[in-house]
Design a binder for these strands. Structure first.
Lengths: 202, 202
DNA sequence: GTCTATACTGAGATAGAC
DNA sequence: GTCTATCTCAGTATAGAC
């Protein structure tokens, strides 16, 4: 039955989002879904492939929005850093309001590094395109510096999605405003003058 | 014998750093260390407590350096954002050169969120002090905005330590220069003018 | 106090009957 | 397609030798 597969998918998404990927056992999923343990392997192959299908379902539409917005930026020689970042980041805002736990899950599996294959499959293409377009908006930044700054940006994005163990989470504000704040922060960072030899020690 | 405990500690640190915490089994550790499985529980209590002791060993000296540098900043009313960030971040540079894999491990366990207890125990106090001092260097930033920016900074730091699945890692530069670049980036972000209603969509 | 042997529980995965 | 039984490998707990 397709019903079995669907029940697994729905239950797994809820449990992964609530408890995280590693903390959710397949036995817990099948118990709540009322199906047999082997059904997961029959329909998906493995626990990781189950996650993969979950991610594809939600991320596909977001990535299509991203690509459309990014190509509009690419066609506009006057596109600002803020607009390009917005094209990449704001399409998350919709799903983030509808499925806040899912966004948290995505941030966590990105940060975990364990599921590198899943991440690369769903984000490598669009993130590469994003960086290529962003690159042209800040031509004055040397290549190596640009890559590091992209690194910082992705770290900040993941953290914004999944929450920090150390900083008290400011409760106010929806996800969209969080993203807008992040864009303000990171755009200033990308425009910062490159320091040759820093004098930062106190 | 203290020898057994020491062998476990050394072997575990190496394997955790090479393969990550979750991916390293206790049976793998004891096989390479040439000790018995139960010895880990006798000396440490659990796998997580073993990690805890590993972290404490390396992080203790770093945190003492941090606190000393931070208090120098606190005593100086003219301390810049860059200097305060440097006080918090540059003490990692030394260990990062000597034990690069260990730094990567720290970034990963921070990002994972699973070992929240270990992270809080070793970093909560010093990071709280850091944020309090940094707060006074940017009084013009509203409180909520400041907390989010701190959030972005911590995400970028963790990512710098553990590497990203999406951005091609720039190979050049030692860890200290990475931190200095990050400080330039984040200081500009903290100083950015707060946008009331952003106009970032393309 | 230190360490060994062994057993327990729960995880993901798989083969084969129906 | 589905289910039972079973396999391997985790982390953990305990009894007891020295």
């Amino acid at each position: 039955m397709l019903d079995t597969k669907h029940k697994i998918l729905e239950t797994a998404e809820r449990l992964f989002a609530e408890q995280g990927y590693s903390a959710t056992s397949m036995r817990h999923i099948i118990a709540e879904a009322g199906v047999n343990l082997a059904a997961i392997h029959y329909h998906f192959g493995s626990k990781e492939d189950l996650l993969d299908e979950l991610v594809a379902r939600r991320v596909g539409p977001v990535n299509r929005e991203r690509v459309a917005a990014l190509e509009r930026c690419a066609a506009d020689p006057k596109a600002t850093v803020e607009e390009i970042m917005g094209a990449f980041l704001l399409p998350i805002a919709g799903p983030a309001e509808d499925h806040p736990q899912f966004i948290r899950l995505m941030g966590r599996i990105y940060a975990e590094g364990l599921l590198r294959g899943v991440i690369e499959k769903h984000f490598h293409e669009v993130s590469t395109r994003f960086l290529a377009i962003l690159r042209k908006a800040v031509p004055e930044v040397p290549e190596e510096e640009f890559l590091w700054r992209a690194h910082y940006l992705f770290g900040a994005v993941a953290h914004t999605m999944c929450g920090s163990p150390l900083v008290p989470p400011p409760v106010g504000g929806d996800f969209r405003s969080r993203i807008e704040r992040l864009i303000t922060f990171a755009a200033a960072g990308f425009r910062a003058a490159v320091t040759e030899t820093s004098e930062v020690r106190g």
